[in-house]
Simulated scan of single mutants.
Amino acid sequence: MPETRGIRSPERELTAPVSLTGADGRLNRDAVGWTRHPLHDTGGIGHGRTAWGRNKRWEYWAITSPELIVAVTVATLDYATLSQVWALDRRTGAEIDRSAVTPLSRGVELPGTLGKGLATARVPGIEVDLDEIEGGTRIRARTDRVDLDVVAERPAGHEALGVVVPWSDRRFQYTVKDVARPARGTVAVDGHRVELPAGESWAVLDHGRGRWPYSMRWHWGAASGIEHGVRIGLQLGGLWTAGTGSTENALSVDGRLSKIGDELDWRFDPGDHLAPWTITGERVDLVFTPFHDRHARTALGVIHSETHQCFGTYCGTVIDDDGKSQSVDALLGWAEVVRNRW
């Protein structure tokens, strides 16, 4: 991949607070763009009668470490909630999955805007607390088999990618993808307690607030770690942003974001998700090699979904905003393809 000097994303960078919605509940066009720090007030999502049934709000945290991978989801979809705690034992390949769907918003509380309150779930078999604390986010989750208490640290100057994706004035999404957050704390699975090792344990946030079409497909890839002496985070997306003028692609180097504005080309074998994937663009040239496929299907009322979330390692190069090629050799993360009707 050639070196390129001073590439910048064509998308607009926002640097001042803005409301995602107008007084009528529709998209505020002044909110369309991307940010390095959360600046969007999303309190209009989930309130009033505008497009009831299409409002989606969630917090998803994934924690990777040498021994365990854990994911925690707290979501409300207007007509139902979804709470989940999932764990993978990397030594054995065994999965542990506890999920619960409750009607309306029963048992789940989410703040209107990121960082403006506690997110909780108290649903059958699952308890979750997500709380902003000084220097990071505390993630606590409990099921009959999993008990975790982890802090996703926020180093000084750390930047997180925020993006507004506008399908229309009535359908739009605000997402924050925050990669390469150092993780510390403990995770216990079936009574086996693991202290997360420093420098090898990472947390990634997917925060969402928006009003969605019923049917959607997407790719999401993320990875975090130390490579060549620097803290690297990859944030990669596709399908769901096509044609909107927005993308959710970025490189994080020691907490500094380089926004990548072009749509990426995702190639994988739909008959063998554990075969290598390639993800390429003008500034991205990556091969993803999976070691585990988390395959899930849901058919529950109006909710139908199929997910292949593959965990593995990335290698290749990504070019930052200054034209410098950042290489990665074995960066731990995931790549997924999701088909949702919700």
Rank of each mutant, 00 (worst) to 15 (best):
residue 342 W to P: 12
residue 204 V to F: 11
residue 8 R to H: 13
residue 325 S to A: 14
residue 1 M to H: 06
residue 191 G to T: 02
residue 235 Q to N: 15
residue 201 S to N: 07
residue 255 G to E: 03
residue 8 R to N: 11
residue 303 I to Y: 04
residue 152 A to N: 11
residue 278 T to G: 06
residue 240 W to M: 05
residue 204 V to N: 08
residue 273 H to F: 15
residue 145 R to H: 09
residue 268 F to I: 01
residue 117 G to T: 07
residue 115 G to P: 15
residue 306 E to A: 06
residue 21 T to A: 12
residue 313 T to N: 12
residue 105 S to Y: 06
residue 177 K to G: 03
residue 95 E to S: 13
residue 274 L to G: 02
residue 307 T to Q: 00
residue 12 R to H: 10
residue 334 W to S: 10
residue 162 G to E: 03
residue 2 P to C: 07
residue 278 T to H: 03
residue 117 G to I: 08
residue 170 R to V: 03
residue 44 G to V: 06
residue 250 A to S: 15
residue 233 G to A: 00
residue 335 A to L: 06
residue 162 G to K: 07
residue 204 V to M: 10
residue 182 P to C: 10
residue 129 D to Q: 11
residue 201 S to P: 13
residue 318 V to Q: 00
residue 313 T to A: 13
residue 274 L to I: 02
residue 270 P to I: 01
residue 44 G to H: 02
residue 314 Y to G: 11
residue 172 F to M: 12
residue 268 F to L: 13
residue 283 R to T: 08
residue 275 A to M: 10
residue 240 W to Q: 00
residue 95 E to A: 11
residue 91 R to I: 01
residue 106 R to D: 11
residue 73 T to M: 09
residue 222 A to G: 15
residue 104 L to H: 11
residue 65 S to P: 14
residue 41 D to C: 09
residue 187 V to M: 01
residue 69 I to E: 03
residue 293 D to V: 01
residue 180 A to R: 03
residue 242 A to H: 09
residue 56 K to R: 15
residue 93 G to L: 05
residue 53 G to W: 04
residue 54 R to K: 14
residue 47 H to Q: 14
residue 89 D to W: 04
residue 53 G to E: 05
residue 23 A to D: 15
residue 309 Q to G: 05
residue 291 F to T: 01
residue 36 R to Q: 07
residue 213 P to V: 00
residue 221 G to Q: 07
residue 217 R to Y: 03
residue 204 V to I: 05
residue 297 R to I: 10
residue 5 R to F: 08
residue 183 A to P: 13
residue 259 K to H: 14
residue 298 T to L: 01
residue 156 A to P: 14
residue 253 V to S: 04
residue 263 E to S: 13
residue 342 W to K: 04
residue 202 W to R: 14
residue 20 L to C: 11
residue 196 L to M: 08
residue 186 T to E: 14
residue 285 D to K: 04
residue 232 I to K: 01
residue 290 P to R: 02
residue 21 T to M: 04
residue 156 A to W: 03
residue 241 T to I: 02
residue 115 G to R: 08
residue 69 I to A: 09
residue 226 I to W: 01
residue 169 D to G: 13
residue 1 M to Q: 05
residue 66 P to F: 10
residue 81 T to N: 12
residue 280 T to Y: 06
residue 264 L to K: 01
residue 128 V to E: 01
residue 205 L to Y: 07
residue 27 L to D: 04
